[in-house]
Design a protein around this nucleic acid. Structure first.
Lengths: 336, 336
DNA sequence: CCTTCGCTCTATAACGTTATACAGACCGTC
DNA sequence: GACGGTCTGTATAACGTTATAGAGCGAAGG
């Protein structure tokens, strides 16, 4: 059916090896024959069979990006950046979902689909240091996301502690005294909220504000519904908060909606700040003040570090890379 | 490195062919040997090498879904459904972007990446009937999305004409007389807006309302920013609209934001309705009335029709499949 | 008792690549 | 004129599967 190396070789009157060398330049080929081969390739419209190439080479040219979900626009934007970076370097990026499910995260990390991929970028929610450390798969892996692992893998993540402190400083500068945190998680394994929560408490302490456990709200997920539910819980308090620091933008947007339903005004009654800078927050009513991580860079860096490992470039010991972030002030928590 | 058929064969004391038959049941194997082989597989942890299998079989087990972008949550939700459907049937789904770029759409349709995929689900924005008809690639393809092609391919799409008429009937029942349409496209090739635009004009005519060309706004893209810009243009009119029918939810949400900036209230001053039912519209302020297509079914149907073709199941001539949709009434255009 | 099945299983040839080993030709050097 | 060295090219053996042809063997059929 499809034209193969053999067809080209016959047409150009050379060996298959020579055609192969013309195609991928493993060894030099004489000018005259090179042209003859190239012409045959153009005429017959040859493209190399990837399965065969990969069988021979032992690599597939496919890397996977495993995300909790695609419905959170933060991940969609991240995926977008990663796909572009991978494509630019000649790789194909495959998307995988873990559904925020611990079992699936373990499965992915431990080589599910290892046959088809050369490497893995994993954005895990549940995995802790031990899980990562006890991984048996040899497939190169780069970690992305908010947890702290200190595991022997490259890890691309913003400085969550600093980001949280900056968000909190902004709310405090606004004169808010009772600031709530929505999106905590009880389990020790949930490292992301741990860091952001620590930023929250540290900022309170630094400002001389009391820490009220009632103002820290646990959510089961990371979506708008979770944010709304968390906010509703806060509004049942005798002394409700005058500001909300949300684990991410979706939770913040859900909280804003719940405040609206309750007849409260944002930011007049309650100021709200999130993390992620999803596009939605630039058009919401009110627009959302947020911490904006450099998603483009996160995606690109993760891909590049992974390809360095895959292609055996000297990359040194595993390290943590911290792309920059910046505070984006909008209506939900305006400038002081 | 990895364990292969040969290793299992040696361990179980049988031929490779027998192991292969145990693994994929091409031909029956005796009970005793089957167990012995299975045990060897379990002990050594064998998984078949996909490149080799696919080289031999001529198929890769990978299908592609080509979308304009992932940042529109509608496509993210669709991709989600398709990925799950493909996984359930043992296939891997690869995401591709066209950036809403005509050249890239042509490239994808015409077999870019054909070496790696068994089939393609294409959600095209720019391609017209001739483009589709003149396709040379033999890779099975299923079309998804709002255009009308009448091309020799299965096509999964809601009845856009009926959906638009239903949206318009709702606005008209609300007593609105000057209803705008945001998201039209001038070029004939842009079939999606064509159908929705036709539903708009037909509904106006059916209600005995005049068609005012000023109320039909062209946008360059399909995002929130485009909706906001379109709305701002409408607000410069001497007689601004009292309702907006948006090509999709993102445009509707952008329009709502622009109305808010202009000091107008939704739905009191202007009612707004969209199409897509993205989650964002369930939490926005105000929540968004919309036409909700069955995205889950669209994704599943597209995958199933494609796999029917790939696996050579008798599927009859190419047909159009119309998943159901329903009107979801929320705050931006409440019940009459 | 010889055929003809039916059942298991084996040996082996592909699938389309790429890496290795090797063969000529041509050049300059001692 | 023998020797080593670069250039080009070829032949061929893998990579890990699966499909095909066929071998062995007991049972059924004449």
């Amino acid at each position: 059916m499809a034209v193969s190396l053999k067809d080209i070789a016959r047409r150009a009157g050379v060996s298959q090896a020579t055609v192969s060398n013309v195609v991928n330049g493993y060894r030099p080929v004489g000018e005259a024959t090179r042209e003859r081969v190239q012409q045959a390739i153009d005429e017959l419209g040859y493209t190399p069979n990837l399965s065969a190439r990969h069988l021979r080479r032992g690599r597939t040219g496919i890397i996977a990006l495993a995300l909790p979900e695609l419905n959170n626009p933060y991940f969609a934007e991240l995926a977008d950046a990663a796909i572009r970076a991978a494509t630019a370097r000649g790789y194909t990026l495959l998307l995988d979902y873990t559904d925020g499910d611990r079992e699936k995260e373990l499965l992915v990390a431990d080589g599910f689909r290892a046959q088809i991929i050369d490497g893995l970028i994993l954005s895990a929610v549940h995995l802790n240091r031990d899980d990562i450390a006890s991984r048996t798969s040899q497939t190169p892996m780069v970690l992305v996301g908010e947890a702290i692992y200190h595991a022997p893998y490259d890890h691309v993540v913003i400085d969550n502690l600093a980001a949280s402190r900056e968000a909190m400083r902004h709310l405090i500068a606004l004169g808010r005294r009772r600031i709530a945190f929505i999106g905590a998680h009880i389990e020790a394994s949930r490292a992301p909220s741990l860091l952001r929560l620590r930023g929250y408490t540290e900022a309170l302490a630094a400002a001389g504000l009391p820490f009220d456990p009632d103002l820290t709200v646990t959510t089961s997920g990371f979506g708008r519904g979770d944010g709304a539910a968390g906010m509703r819980a806060l509004l049942t308090l005798a002394q409700p908060p005058d500001a909300v620091f949300a684990f991410n933008d979706l939770i913040a947007l859900g909280a804003i909606r719940a405040l609206h339903d309750h007849g409260l005004r944002v930011p007049t009654d309650v100021a709200v700040i999130g993390i992620d800078d999803v596009e939605e927050g630039r058009f919401s009513i009110p627009t959302l003040t947020t911490i904006s991580p450099d998603k483009e860079l996160i995606g690109r860096l993760a891909v590049e570090k992974l390809l360095d490992r895959i292609e055996g470039r000297p990359a040194g010991p595993p390290a943590e890379f911290q792309p920059p972030f910046r505070l984006v002030v909008r209506e939900s928590a305006p400038a002081p």
